[in-house]
Simulated assay, not measured.
Amino acid sequence: MTARPTRTLVSATGPAGNIGDALIRRGAVRWAAGTSDELVVYVGEAPDTWLHQLGLPSGTRVLRSKRSVARWLWLIATAPRHPVLVFESGEIPLDRGNVLRELVFLAETLLVRLKGGVVVRPPRGIRAATQSAAAIHSVAARLSQFALWRDAASAVLAGGARVVPDIGFAAGIRPGTPWADRRDLIVSLRGTRPMPDGNWHEAVHAFAASEGLRIRTVVQVREDETRARELADALGGTFEPWGDADPLAREARLRERYDDARLVISDRMHVLVLAALSGAAPLELVPSPTHKITAAFATIGLTELTADAATLSPAEMQERMRRQIDRADEVTDRVAAAAADLTALEDEIRTAIRKARA
């Protein structure tokens, strides 16, 4: 008797205007590709450009719009034996409004496990946890063969134990421009947070001048474009807009910019991840930074990556930037180890899927 085709289902929603989100969703799709005869990817309300950003293999069955959720659930329920279910990587909100969603995800997990399948929750971080949503999420995570956390605090909240590098570190290490020839100090800050004060501007401008670096502001999340322009004006730097560029072309251009940078200052986690992959020194130097970046980079052994600009003088901020540049070799070594860990993890997942079907 001919075996029924196998099926892998991947959730990969996200905004096309956020290159970091595309990066980590693409990583999860790459883990799933080739694990079954049929690949099904749910993208929600995402535009056509998002499909290109995900790098979906030819023949992928794409489910779009919230109207296709019922179809998604039906494909899980009717999947042949040993299906694979891959949830989204990234930040997971567990506030009260997500209790129903977590119940649905728990039901999906149970269905796949009852069919002898494999459930993969790629590296994730928890945000805004409430007791009810976190409790449901914790049960679903324990029922998954792979429940991975990109920071220790999230693992504790979910009752998990496996802390691994953020999947963004698997996006490819680049040699970049030789260190002696790098001439850029790049800044990319969230547009939704307050503009740093005069002391911060003074410190960044003075440090760039002392190191012979050009200041360049870039946009990795489209909503930050106005802030990037404001920063360039305030710092006397060069502003590089997103404009009408295709997101994939924009991502490629950004990575080239990070290749030329010695220091990248940002409060966007995946700006700093891509910067580190290009060999630049990453630094979160902003007023009242969150714990997110600190926690994720601590997982790969990089500590003291964050500094609270509100508590430092201009001279202290300059010293902090100088110390970070001196750590470039350490950054390169830690990023290489993280990439190797993620490659081994992908191999482990694929092996578990093969064994489940043996």
Rank of each mutant, 00 (worst) to 15 (best):
Q131K: 14
A129G: 13
I167N: 04
D181A: 13
T177K: 07
A129T: 09
G172F: 10
G172K: 09
R142T: 08
V164C: 02
V163S: 07
I173K: 06
R150G: 04
I186Q: 00
G160F: 00
A128R: 14
D181W: 07
A147P: 03
R183N: 05
G191Y: 06
G160N: 03
G159I: 07
I167E: 01
V156P: 07
D166N: 11
Q145C: 11
D181C: 08
T177P: 03
D151F: 00
G159Q: 12
L189T: 03
P165V: 07
R174Q: 00
A158H: 01
A128M: 14
S154T: 15
R142Y: 10
R150P: 03
R190T: 06
H137T: 08
A129Q: 12
G172D: 12
H137M: 10
Q131H: 14
A141S: 15
R150Q: 12
R182Q: 10
A170G: 13
A129V: 11
L185V: 08
W149D: 00
A141W: 01
V187Y: 00
A152S: 15
A147R: 01
L143P: 03
A140G: 07
A141P: 03
R182T: 02
S138Y: 11
W149E: 00
L189M: 15
G160W: 00
A133I: 07
I173D: 04
P175V: 09
F169T: 05
A141D: 05
I136R: 01
A158F: 04
T130K: 11
T130G: 13
D184P: 08
H137C: 11
T177W: 05
I136T: 04
L185P: 00
V156N: 15
S132P: 14
P178S: 10
R182V: 02
G168M: 03
W149A: 02
L148I: 15
A147I: 02
W179D: 09
G191E: 08
A161F: 14
L148R: 05
V139D: 08
S138L: 09
G176H: 02
S144L: 12
G176C: 08
A180M: 07
T177M: 06
G172E: 09
R182A: 02
A133V: 07
D181H: 11
F169K: 01
T192L: 15
D151C: 05
A155P: 04
A180N: 09
R150D: 07
T192H: 14
S188D: 12
F169E: 04
T177V: 13
S132D: 15
A128S: 12
T130F: 12
G160T: 04
A147T: 03
A170E: 04
G191H: 10
I186D: 01
D184V: 10
P165H: 06
A140N: 04
S132C: 14
R183W: 02
L143K: 10
A133E: 02
D184K: 11
